[in-house]
Computed example of a mutant assay.
Amino acid sequence: MNREFLINMVLLLGLAVVPLWAMAGDAPFTITLATKVAILALAGVGLNIALGIGGLISLGHAAFFGIGGYAMGILASHAQSYTALMEWPILIEGTKFMPVIWLVAVAASALAALVIGALSLRTSGVYFIMITLAFGQMFYFFAISWPAYGGEDGLSIYVRNGFPGLNTLVPIHFFGICYSLLVLALWFNACLAKSPFGLALNASRQCPERVETVGLSPFRLRLTAFVISGAITGLSGALFADLNRFVSPTMFSWQTSGEIMVFIILGGVGRLYGPVAGAALFITLEHFLGGLSEYWHIYLGVLLLLVVLFARGGIIGMLAGRQVAHD
């Protein structure tokens, strides 16, 4: 059993133990923080498929994060209006809602990723980065100018999607759902990386010319990875909207895209559990340092600089003693 596997298991179990400890100590806010870590780590897992395996440096993944959030928010706002009209107060509490809205959010994000990817992947390098950034900013300004759903002020949601047998308004129940989806996404990512598709995608990242000589299309491989990546990120956006019961244009902002990428860089690009380590560290710093100074990002920037300069494999790579995830 290698060292990195043990680190991954400790990280995953630690994320599960913290909210259980908080529940025993009657600290619901800590459970909410752990839930936020799980959701943002899920967004990082989505981007890590495109970035870590496919080598696609996207600064527009906030577009999929926001589409997932707004899909959930818009459908939930109409649902709450309908249930209020029908005088079904128990539905307004959110205990009877099924996770169909999450599936709609995934489908909407995947469709957006298909369109954006089909256009963006015709370029490469800095041009690809700028085009994905431009798409994210387009959605950002569109959300600001959409008064029907709050515009710049965002949209409040008074319901939360339910799940059979669980009350999602109970913090530990909602954490369990988000944590389970994170574990499922990590398992899917691990299977994808070892599959023929994942190996071909990794090969197209390293040498697309050789992939073409064996009859495979690097463009199709990257587009498929981009769509999968967008769908997972969209799911995290829907869960994030559910957690806060609020969506706003900031979900589309380039800062959000940057934060998701920071999770991966901190944890380790190409590392399966890199986004989990990065998201946990980011939220921890935000919680503790944010209370000390509003300029806490300075400390984050210093840490990020140290990781980039001295720990190319991220935190997980440094702890495991392996600086590079793959060639």
Rank of each mutant, 00 (worst) to 15 (best):
residue 72 M to T: 15
residue 113 A to N: 04
residue 105 A to S: 09
residue 99 P to R: 05
residue 90 I to F: 13
residue 143 A to R: 08
residue 142 F to M: 15
residue 105 A to V: 01
residue 147 P to W: 03
residue 125 G to T: 05
residue 56 L to E: 08
residue 135 F to P: 01
residue 135 F to G: 00
residue 137 Q to F: 03
residue 150 G to Y: 01
residue 141 F to I: 02
residue 146 W to E: 12
residue 111 L to A: 12
residue 88 W to V: 12
residue 93 E to G: 15
residue 123 T to I: 05
residue 70 Y to Q: 03
residue 65 F to H: 03
residue 130 M to G: 02
residue 74 I to W: 05
residue 101 I to V: 12
residue 134 A to C: 04
residue 130 M to V: 04
residue 145 S to N: 14
residue 62 A to D: 11
residue 126 V to E: 08
residue 137 Q to S: 03
residue 129 I to V: 15
residue 92 I to D: 13
residue 71 A to R: 01
residue 115 V to N: 09
residue 78 H to S: 13
residue 61 H to M: 04
residue 127 Y to S: 12
residue 121 L to D: 14
residue 93 E to D: 13
residue 116 I to L: 14
residue 116 I to F: 06
residue 87 E to D: 13
residue 127 Y to R: 13
residue 124 S to H: 11
residue 134 A to R: 01
residue 100 V to D: 07
residue 65 F to I: 03
residue 141 F to T: 02
residue 117 G to P: 11
residue 139 F to E: 01
residue 87 E to I: 13
residue 111 L to W: 10
residue 90 I to D: 15
residue 70 Y to I: 04
residue 143 A to L: 09
residue 112 A to K: 03
residue 107 A to F: 08
residue 120 S to M: 09
residue 71 A to H: 01
residue 100 V to I: 15
residue 97 F to M: 12
residue 128 F to D: 07
residue 148 A to E: 14
residue 75 L to Q: 08
residue 149 Y to T: 04
residue 56 L to C: 09
residue 115 V to A: 13
residue 59 L to K: 10
residue 103 L to H: 02
residue 134 A to K: 06
residue 137 Q to D: 06
residue 110 A to W: 04
